[in-house]
Design a protein around this nucleic acid. Structure first.
Lengths: 169, 169
DNA sequence: CACTCGTTTCACAAAGTTGTGAAGACTGTG
DNA sequence: CACAGTCTTCACAACTTTGTGAAACGAGTG
């Protein structure tokens, strides 16, 4: 019998959200199972054990093990031993992972580095190809700069909206 | 014997750039072969025929065919019939594809839509899970807004730097 | 209107990914 | 110190993706 003090979400709807969101992430290169675990924990009201995650997703303990290892590595998931038990519980970190995922990812940094080497190989803007690659690199540089300041602007907006901001320990 | 009036890029270096850049794109979900073709054409000084693309990359005509179909669909590559020949030439479009790739992609739009459904399923911020998902959705909304205006800011910066901007036909 | 060169389509093979089951390792408890 | 409950590792099987070769197609040309 569920706790009546908070609404009981529709299991199926929530599961649909978890799977859809996970697939959307998988489509942009995020490991499939890790994404499923991430959103399963995210949408759960309380921290989950590995077994509970496996149950909810209908996957093996091995799959959960690999996924949580991946996620905890980047701080996208926090592992907490349960006192008086051998189980661990997993919960979302206080500092939202998606902020870091977007801003600290180095995605464009990578493009920039490779493009720079390309510009050199093509002798810079001295060749038509070099000119095109240089322009692309400049654009990615610009985007990277913008993104670097995005986190700052987000926190500012939230503060203005009266949200409390947890600071990292 | 190469044309002496422009520098002759180091074949190997350029090829390295093409392959690395293509893989970087493949890592974020871009079709592998399409990426290779895209950067092969981009780094070439003059438009290439399908056969030339295949040669440079060491892939079959069939692979090139599929890739150019994909790329032309989104205007990331332009196909030009060669007069007096059955061949087509491929070149980069005048309006840089990467701008649209970053700004018009709808990547975050997708996240936002799925998250919104998740918030509903979790009864909004009435549950801890719902609160977390709602915050994520808000963040992605913010990012999407920022990116929407990014293209504008880029063009402004370029104009300020004295660059000519080709306008779409 | 048949021929030729280039492009496209299609079935399939090679390669890579992903998750499973089973065995192993670790840790606290009786 | 043996046992039980968890988590982890590993070899493998299912599935997916990707690119190839071969055949079909189609547009100019003589």
């Amino acid at each position: 019998m569920p706790d009546d003090r908070r609404p009981t979400p529709d299991e199926d709807e929530v599961h649909l959200f978890v799977e859809r969101m996970a697939m959307a992430f998988a489509d942009v290169g995020f490991p499939r199972m890790a994404a499923r675990v991430l959103f399963a924990v995210m949408s759960a009201d309380d921290p989950l054990t590995a077994a509970e995650i496996g149950d909810r997703l209908g996957v093996s303990a091995a799959a959960v093990s690999g996924a949580v290892r991946y996620l905890t590595q980047f701080g996208m998931l926090v592992r907490e031993p349960v006192k008086g038990s051998r189980r661990d519980r997993y919960r979302m970190p206080d500092n939202p992972w998606y902020e870091a995922t977007v801003t600290k990812t180095g995605l464009y940094k990578n493009f920039i580095d490779i493009s720079s080497a390309g510009v050199e190989a093509l002798h810079g803007p001295a060749t038509p190809g070099g000119e095109r690659v240089a322009e692309m690199r400049d654009f990615f540089l610009f985007v990277q700069e913008e993104i670097d300041s995005l986190g700052e602007r987000w926190r500012a907006r939230r503060a203005a909206a009266g949200h409390h901001r947890r600071t990292a320990p």
